[in-house]
Simulated scan of single mutants.
Amino acid sequence: MAGKELHVTDIFLAVQVEAIVAREGAIMAVEKGFSNYVIESDSLQIITALRTTTTDRSVIGLIVEDTKSLMARVTGEVTTHIRRTANIVADCLAQFGRNIGANLTWFEEPPNFIIHLLFEDCN
């Protein structure tokens, strides 16, 4: 298990953020030599785009194509669409990330602030 908080600018669509998140996860999986990589997202558009074999020519197309090329380098990759209600921790992390203004990466053991998010209201 791994995670990353990334500060990005000049993003205008939620789907752009979702695409960047998927790519950053794929980059991390390749850099760390992970043999398995699972993308769970409540964005059906991202999951569909990553599963298709045709070239994505949408506004997020370049990011999607880059992510697919990275995913091809990982042995066991899975893309799964989940309900937004099952993605509460990710939503809390996104809210937290908007406020910290820094980049953080963690592996295996999540930092304490994530554990606290599980037991507190993130609003």
Rank of each mutant, 00 (worst) to 15 (best):
L62N: 12
G3S: 12
G97F: 07
L50R: 05
A72C: 04
A29T: 01
F107M: 07
L44H: 10
L13D: 14
E31N: 07
V74G: 02
S58F: 07
K4R: 15
E5V: 15
T75P: 02
E18D: 15
E120W: 02
R51W: 09
L117I: 04
R51V: 11
T79C: 14
R51G: 08
E24G: 01
S69W: 10
M1Y: 12
E120Q: 13
R84G: 13
T105M: 09
T54A: 15
A72Y: 00
C122S: 05
L50Y: 11
A26E: 01
E31G: 00
T80L: 06
E109P: 03
I46G: 03
N99T: 09
K4T: 06
F34Q: 00
E65S: 14
F96M: 02
I88H: 13
A102L: 04
V21S: 11
C92E: 03
I46W: 01
R98I: 02
I114T: 05
L70T: 01
V21W: 03
I115C: 00
L50T: 07
E65K: 14
G33Q: 01
N99P: 02
A29H: 03
I39A: 06
S69Y: 09
D66M: 06
V21F: 04
F12I: 01
F113W: 13
T52W: 01
V15Y: 05
A29N: 04
E65I: 10
D91N: 12
F119I: 06
A22N: 06
V59I: 15
I114N: 07
E18C: 12
S69H: 11
T79V: 06
A102V: 14
G61A: 12
I47F: 03
A49P: 09
I27L: 14
T85R: 11
G101D: 06
G76P: 01
G61R: 05
C122I: 02
S41L: 07
F96C: 03
N87V: 00
F96R: 08
T79I: 00
R83T: 02
T55V: 15
L117T: 04
L13R: 04
I47Y: 05
A49Q: 04
M1S: 14
V30G: 02
R98E: 01
I39R: 02
E24M: 11
M71Q: 02
L93T: 00
E40T: 05
T52P: 03
I11Y: 14
I82C: 08
W106R: 12
G61P: 12
H116S: 12
